[in-house]
Design a protein around this nucleic acid. Structure first.
Lengths: 189, 189
DNA sequence: CGACGCCTTGATAAATGTCAAACGTCGTGG
DNA sequence: CCACGACGTTTGACATTTATCAAGGCGTCG
C-alpha cells in the first residue's frame, strides 16, 4: 500500500487493527500535546515493523515522513496465530520488549545536552544504515528536532558546529557523513 | 525479603534472574550516565511488580528508595509457567506493553515545562494513592528531580510556587495535598 | 545539645528557545 | 530555458528558562 509523505497512517486513540512493515520510505510515530508540541518516539526504515502497540487503542500516532510503500497486515491474522503457536507469541513479546528498551534509551537521551542528543541521533542512524558512516536522513529537521526534544534551530546550529569541528560533513541537508566516528562515540557518554 | 533504603536491588547489565513484587516501601528503576546524571524510569509502590525487563540483561538498575519488604520470584519459575500456560504468557506480554505505554507517557513529560512536569508527577502519584488528593511521597526531592529531568532546586521552587497559588499544600516535605485538582489537571496539557 | 541530611531560598550563569530575516533548492509555469 | 515562488534550512540578535553555586533553615537522631 502507498502512503504519500505527511500522510497519517493511524492516530492516537484509534483501535489497533493492523500491523505494518515498511517496504520503502520512512515512518515516524509520535504523540502530540494540545498546543502542538510533539514528541517523536521512533523512526521506522525499510524492513522495520511498527504498529504493534497492542493495547487495544493506539498510544501513538504514525505518519509517513516521505512517500512510502507499506505492507499492511490485519491484526486478527496475527492474534489467530498467537493463540495456536507459542513461538509467535514469544516473538511478539520480544518485539514489545525491544520497543520498551528503545523507549528507555530515548528517555535518557532527553536529559542530555543538545550536542549529545544530536550525536546520539547520528550514531543511531549510522548504526542502522548500510555502511555505518554515510547516513541518508529521510526526515526533516523538524522531525529530528521533535525526536530529540529540541528546536530546529538548535539542531541546525549543532550540526554546523559539528561540521566546524570536522566531526561530520553535510554534503546536502539530508545526507551526513561521519568523519570522526570515534570522537562522536566519546560524546555519546 | 528486606531491603534497607538506598540498597541496590539489581544493576544494569546484570542477568535477569528474578522478578519482584513490592510488599511495603517503594522502589525506583533508573539509568546512569558515566558522569553521574541519572534518569529515573519509574517508581514502584506496594502491590506493584517490577523487574520484568526480559531482555536477558537488565536494561535498568533498581534500588529501594525507603526500607522495603519485597517478594522475590525466580525467573525460571515464571518461564516454566509460560511455556505451558498460554494465558500467563499473554499476561506477561500485557505487562510489558503497559510498561511501554508508561515509558511513552514519560517521554512526552520530558519535553514539557518544569511546572507541567511537576504537576504531571503529582497527578500521577495522586492517581495511584488511596484518596487521590492526599499524597505520601516516599522518595526524596532528588529522586523526583531525576524522574522529571530537573534539578532538586527547580522541583522545590515549583512546589513552593504551586503552594503560593494555593493549588497544593505541603504540610511536610513528604506529604502533599491537592487543593485545586481541576486547575492542576488543566496544566497537565 | 550538636551534627548530619535534606530541603528551601537567593544570586548569577549558561543553555536553549524565540523571533526575524536571508539563503538555497527544487519544481512550476511563462 | 529562465524566472518565480514555495518550502526547508541556516544564521543572527535577543529573551527566557532552568542549572549552578552558595548559604541558610529545619527536623531527626545519636
Amino acid at each position: 500500500m502507498l502512503f504519500p509523505r505527511r500522510t497519517e497512517i493511524y492516530g492516537e486513540k484509534q483501535p489497533s487493527e493492523h500491523v505494518y512493515k515498511v517496504l520503502s520510505g520512512a515512518v515516524c510515530t509520535y504523540k502530540l500535546l494540545i498546543d502542538g508540541r510533539r514528541q517523536v518516539d521512533a523512526f521506522y526504515l525499510p524492513g522495520d515493523v511498527f504498529g504493534l502497540d497492542f493495547n487495544k487503542e493506539r498510544t501513538l500516532s504514525a505518519k509517513a515522513v516521505v512517500d512510502c510503500r507499506i505492507l499492511v497486515i490485519k491484526r486478527s491474522a496475527l492474534t489467530a496465530l498467537v493463540t495456536h503457536d507459542n513461538k509467535v507469541a514469544r516473538q511478539l513479546w520480544a518485539f514489545t520488549a525491544a520497543e520498551l528498551k528503545h523507549a528507555q534509551d530515548h528517555m535518557i537521551l532527553l536529559i542530555k545536552t543538545a550536542e549529545e542528543r544530536v550525536v546520539a541521533f547520528l550514531l543511531e542512524m549510522a548504526e542502522r544504515s548500510n555502511d555505518h558512516l554515510e547516513i541518508d536522513l529521510p526526515m526533516t529537521r523538524q522531525d529530528i528536532a521533535d525526536y530529540l526534544g529540541l528546536t530546529i534551530e538548535t539542531v541546525s546550529r549543532t550540526l554546523t558546529q559539528l561540521q566546524a569541528n570536522a566531526a561530520i560533513s553535510v554534503p546536502s541537508s539530508h545526507r551526513i557523513i561521519l568523519r570522526k566516528p570515534a570522537a562522536l562515540r566519546c560524546l555519546n557518554v
